[in-house]
Design a protein around this nucleic acid. Structure first.
Length: 566
DNA sequence: GCCGTTTTCGGCCCGACTGTTTTCAGTCG
């Protein structure tokens, strides 16, 4: 059982305990422990063997026992019992908006409802209105919530949400009703998927801002409206929350509404120890406000270095000793993993190169598909040889830019690379990727990938888990072993910046960094505009605390070639 | 269930909004 699975069990226990009306602090303890494990960069099984579980903050005696049971037996009696006690369908009900564990428990205990379908039926038959705390409006709200739940997974990719948020910001700014306005919430932290869009504005007349906001293009429904908070649903189904505060309150509110929730809790604990109180309106000592004009001052007032939003996940960012020199959005000097019309890209090589050059990049590694990717018009040896000549011709064009000859080479089920060693040896780099036989058992898949990594012509492991966000699980793979192999053979692992991949994810990137495995932030561009995806990759790298030194393509060309040849 | 530079017991972050309520519980972030 790996760290992720153990964290999942503890999270699940926390959730189940809520249905039992358990002490909310006990519930939180389970979620905290899960969070602590999730961000761990070592294998919990090793920590357990060394009897060091108790050293992990958030893990005490009870957690230690449960984790040990999970690791040694693969099961946990306490968890099994809980699951038997609370029907799965009842747990599933909390994915209905504004329907939480307390309400779920009431309909289950009072009316014996254990599925969302039954819940809908009960609402339609007006059976809920008699229950304590339930009225006509609640019933209607639940029906609406179920409808929404069925239409949407309720999650959106970063690249779907970000442009919408930016256009709403522009709308509010254009109205001249706001002083300052910003994206907040998980979107500002660049979480890979988001549930909604959070916006924060400062203004002298909040009501005016709300008036403008509900008239924004795309608003289909006003879900709620108060003096300081308004929620709307867009025609796309996306929910947008807007909070309005006074301008002096803006920095505190921005910190607060950016979250994460766990980061905020940790911030307040830090504040409390210094006799300070933090809320969205200020930092106060007694009745005295500590003035901050922006977030930098906010953190300073608490004696902390400024924590960029991407890092605010309560995984150690409040410990100044651990603070990294984060990679910047302008740190990349070149990119790898780009496609052209030679395989399944939509743009000519030259257009891709010109776009990369216009973005201020100095080199672009071209890596069209190899022949096993027939669906993508993959190249055989002969076409690849021809493409190399074409690149030589194009490279005469620029003094300040170069296209590198590469290939996204299929890793065959055997673990061999798709094209002959002879032609691979002529390339400047080779990305190895899995595009077939996703269904292999974990052990075989791990061996397949590790064998490819050991191949002398292999340089970069492409989208290591193969997951597609919101649509496909990754293939089964022992990432720990894969990263070890990359380290041993001094190979590079990709952080694929394509917004529905972001693979490796931030947690595993951080693990790679801690192991000393070099990463490369790659756009996996199939069009010129896809090159801009590197922004999502850099954001993910920042979430993983990566520094420039951890990333291949922050380096100048000559150094990059040295690393690839070495 | 975790934690401790006043503590091994008694705390544990804080507030807005909604719908149901005459003072509050649940949900959300």
């Amino acid at each position: 059982m790996n760290n992720g699975q153990i964290a999942q069990v503890l999270d699940s226990i926390g959730e189940l305990l809520e249905f039992k009306d358990e002490n909310p602090f006990k519930v939180r303890a389970y979620h905290n422990a899960a969070r602590a494990i999730e961000s761990l960069t070592v294998d919990l099984a090793d920590v357990c063997r060394d009897k060091k579980l108790g050293d992990i903050p958030g893990i005490g005696k009870a957690m230690e026992e449960k984790i040990t049971e999970l690791i040694t037996t693969g099961k946990l009696g306490f968890y099994e019992e809980l699951r038997k006690e609370i029907p799965e369908g009842v747990v599933a009900m909390v994915s209905i908006p504004s329907f939480g564990p307390k309400k779920a428990r009431v309909v289950w205990k009072e009316l014996g409802i254990t599925t969302i379908a039954d819940l809908r039926k009960a609402c339609q038959e007006n059976k809920l209105s008699g229950l304590k705390g339930f009225g006509e409006k609640t019933q209607q709200k639940i029906l609406k919530g179920i409808e929404f739940h069925e239409q949407h997974v309720g999650q959106y990719l970063l690249n779907d949400a970000m442009p919408v948020a930016k256009s709403l910001i522009a709308w509010l700014e254009a109205s001249k009703t706001v002083h300052r306005v910003s994206i907040a919430g998980s979107l500002r932290r660049w979480k890979e998927t988001v549930r909604d869009i959070d916006l924060l504005a400062s203004a002298t007349d909040a009501a005016k801002v709300m008036d403008v906001f509900v008239k924004a293009p795309g608003v289909a429904e006003v879900i709620g409206r108060g003096d300081t908070k308004t929620s709307v649903r867009l025609a796309s189904g996306m929910q947008v929350d807007l909070r309005v505060v006074t301008d002096p309150q803006f920095p505190y509110a921005l910190a607060y509404f950016t979250g994460s929730k766990e980061h905020n809790v940790a911030i307040r604990q830090v504040a409390q120890k210094q006799g300070l109180k933090v809320n969205e309106y200020g930092i106060t000592r007694g009745s005295t406000l500590i003035e901050c004009k922006d977030e930098v001052e906010f953190y300073k007032a608490l004696g902390l270095p400024y924590v960029p939003p991407e890092m605010r996940e309560n995984t150690g960012e409040l410990d100044p000793k651990k603070f990294p020199q984060l990679i910047d959005y302008k740190s990349l000097k070149g990119v790898f993993h780009t496609h052209s019309t030679w395989s399944d890209g939509t743009a000519e090589i030259e257009a891709m190169a010109e776009k990369a050059r216009s973005m201020g990049l100095r080199y672009m590694g071209l890596s069209d598909h190899s022949k096993a990717a027939a669906y993508a018009n993959g190249m055989d040896e002969a076409r690849l040889a021809k493409q190399m000549k074409e690149i030589d011709r194009l490279n005469k064009k620029w003094k300040d830019f170069r296209i590198l000859k590469g290939l996204e080479c299929d890793i065959l089920p055997s673990g061999d690379l798709d094209l002959s060693p002879d032609i691979l040896g002529q390339l400047e780099f080779v990305i190895g990727s899995i595009h077939s036989r996703f269904d292999m058992p974990e052990k075989e898949m791990t061996e397949r990938v590790c064998k490819a990594i050991a191949n002398e012509h292999f340089d970069i492991l492409g989208h290591a888990t193969g997951r597609l966000l919101l649509s496909r699980e990754g293939y089964k793979l022992d990432l720990g072993r894969v990263l070890e192999a990359a380290k041993q053979h001094r190979k590079i692992v990709e952080l694929n910046a394509y917004p529905n991949r972001l693979d490796l994810d931030w947690i595993h990137c951080r693990r790679a960094k801690d192991l000393g495995v070099m990463m490369s932030i790659n756009p996996d561009a199939h069009s010129t505009s896809d090159l801009e995806n590197i922004e999502y990759g850099i954001a993910t790298a920042r979430r993983a605390w990566l520094e420039e030194k951890d990333v291949l393509n922050t380096r100048d060309l000559d150094e990059v070639l040295e690393i690839l040849n070495g």
